[in-house]
Design a protein around this nucleic acid. Structure first.
Lengths: 404, 404
DNA sequence: CGGACTTTGTAAACTCCATAGCAATATTGG
DNA sequence: CCAATATTGCTATGGAGTTTACAAAGTCCG
């Protein structure tokens, strides 16, 4: 209230803002000419020219000399955002697998590293596997930890502001794990730990089936059920990072919902508990009566919590994602019918298009958000380099508050 | 995606931005000296001086000549935001009353007009009463409709983007009423129609008991139960304007909750249905067993829906408001206990401090938001004057998206 | 009562940024 | 080879903010 932080706007600050404007325009894909950028940003051509050259000398952009393009007039030099100036890592620390994605500043995935983990592996085993995946991902892509500008890790369970899963943890022995601290020993850049559902929601809006929507309820459906909320284009974490945890309500039968699929009469004893749900979905698709009934009971159970979220937020889209999204063909229609019964205004119900990679992709996006946030606060005056982590712990709520 | 609207930043635009910065600083209360403003905004003294003088000549600020203040050095001229340059109206179209507030650009209420309406009055009677209240409010404060910069009206029931209550209406005969159109005949300025719960939530954050919080679930408790959501400091309406309508879920017993209070054994037959709840609260406060049990049943019923909202959003604060907030002393503790049972992380539970005026106050705030939005898009170059309504209907979601 | 001190108000010089308009340049098509 | 066309490069112009300097208007203290 007292120090209403207001940006004093200097002349140099204006240049900085315009530079950032050019960078923003440049990043929305293809190499652009000065005139295109001028038209796009509203700045004059000379101004854009000076700024673009400054970006090149600063290392933020590269020149694309004109190739044989078939237009009248002198061929224009094109400028391209130097996405390879930095890289980020997004990693999904899941129950069954660890998946790390390494991407450049455009979000283009450069390298992928995956490793299976036993569902009952203890915390230190899982952390060792994580280290292994990260090391492989770095070495195979020819990078070192110092080349990485931001790292985001996704885990199950609500994550508080300090990056810990104190409320409850699903992974064995995970209550006491401080993942952010663990990663801090390996990276000097900012590190963010976030709930898997929230990350998957972010991914779905970024590259998935909800690219057009600003108000999204994302369901991560698998052996555990969770939700991630995007409101007005921004991922919402809640005050304590526990937004979307509607499954904790007893009246919402999210905890027990998957049991209908696992306990379906007729599941062969040879099928392990992890594959039972898949078996039931397949059987339902083949017309098995019991399986269809089980799926319907499952949908009925998840619909109540979904309806609660829909009524609370009135979103434009509900995205059905997670492991079970492979069977979305069986779920979507009955889910729509249930929501019709329960809600005032039924949103679009769509299937996830990203599947099992969504959490890691969302982690990537959040890491990029962190990079963007720095860019827009620190500016472009310094040459591109991996930022050092601030002493104060990363405030996830701030990072999440970036559009796209 | 194509026209990523980017502000081309001209030199004059920079001046505009700095002027807006000064205005923002100026509005946060008391008349300030040039040096104070310079320190506050980061601009140099000469720059602030020029801008401040420009604001005075433009009609946006006034000079306060130094009075006998006992400080060392030359006494400083002070500048004050000219809040009286414009006025806005916020009006609550309630079931029992219509309350209109007229305020200046600082939000200081200049005039109040109130009128009782029968709960079963039909739509045209209610609209006539509204017209009457507005006319009285204007004439008694010596203003005309042309002096008003924005009008916001609060009604029960979810309001869609066009300002209509199509989903369902509580007021008799209100389904077909186009309140925005009705008001358009009387005012040329922007007109916003909004749900009462949402407005009350806004008020509570502005001047009520949730001033410190950015993530708020507000409960409007009365004969009808509703909620308004503020997330990250901004009122959230949802894609279709129906955010917070968790009461539509059958498992949430919000519809039937007040019946416990009305149907409490021992309510005298002389007490009308509207006052029965008050009687029960009073009886409970006096130790009446049946009344206490009724209150407890009531709290248990509203707690489920509240818990759903809390789990969905993980807010910092839950505010108990509306007509029943007078009896918050009986409700808050049991409500906290119930939430403790149902939620992961229990937020602060507080009573509203604004009472029955909260809806009209929130309407005022939303009207001011609209004025601010215009200010920040149109700029200060034009002298202060009542804006004319755009042809396109006011997009409430945009207006709501202003902090504070 | 007068001088020292402090703070405000104002003017001038300087720097920086963006714009506008013109000349030079490079490519295509005839 | 020349004309048409579009881009690039350059210079002059004007606007905005900062710094510096100095006069003006008070208070404090001897």
């Amino acid at each position: 209230m007292t120090d209403q932080v207001i940006a004093g706007t200097d002349l140099t600050r204006l240049r900085e803002l315009n530079s950032l404007t050019i960078v923003s325009a440049l990043r929305d894909q293809p190499p652009a000419t000065v005139t295109e950028l001028a038209k796009l940003t509203g700045l004059s051509r000379p101004a854009v020219d000076v700024i673009a050259q400054g970006l090149v000398t600063g290392g933020w952009a590269t020149v694309v000399e004109p190739d044989g393009s078939s237009v009248v007039g002198r061929p224009a030099r094109r400028y391209r955002f130097r996405a390879s100036a930095g890289h980020v890592i997004g990693v999904d620390v899941g129950a069954h697998k660890i998946l790390a994605l390494l991407a450049d500043l455009d979000g283009t995935v450069v390298h992928t590293a995956r490793r299976s983990v036993a569902a009952d592996a203890n915390a230190s085993e899982r952390l060792a596997a994580l280290d292994d995946v990260l090391a492989v991902c770095l070495s195979e892509s020819g990078k070192t930890a110092q080349d990485i500008w931001a790292v985001t890790a996704g885990v199950t369970g609500p994550v508080d502001a300090t990056g810990k899963t104190t409320l409850f943890a699903v992974l064995p022995g995970w209550q006491t794990v401080d993942l952010a601290a663990h990663l801090s020993n390996r990276f000097t850049c900012p590190i963010i730990v976030e709930n898997d559902c929230k990350l998957a929601a972010l991914a779905e809006r970024w590259q998935g089936s909800a690219r057009d929507a600003n108000d999204i309820v994302f369901l991560l459906a698998g052996m555990r059920m969770g939700a991630g909320l995007i409101i007005d284009g921004v991922l919402r974490r809640g005050f304590g990072g526990a937004a979307g945890e509607i499954g904790a309500l007893k009246a919402v039968r999210w905890l027990s919902a998957p049991a209908h699929l696992q306990g379906c009469p007729g599941v062969p004893t040879t099928v392990g508990p992890d594959d039972a749900a898949a078996w039931t979905f397949n059987a339902a698709r083949d017309g098995n009566r019991d399986a269809r009934a089980a799926v319907n009971r499952y949908v009925k159970d998840i619909a109540v919590g979904t309806a609660a979220l829909v009524l609370a937020l009135d979103p434009q889209v509900v995205v059905f994602g997670g492991g079970f999204s492979r069977s979305a063909d069986l779920v979507l229609d009955p889910l729509r019918r249930e929501l019709q019964k329960l809600c005032l205004r039924v949103p679009d119900v769509r299937a996830s298009t990203l599947g099992a990679d969504s959490v890691a992709l969302g982690a990537l996006r959040l890491a990029l958000n962190e990079v963007d946030r720095r860019l827009f606060t620190v500016g472009l005056s310094a040459p591109p380099a991996a930022p050092r982590r601030e002493e104060s712990p990363a405030q996830s709520n701030e990072v999440a508050g970036t559009k796209v």
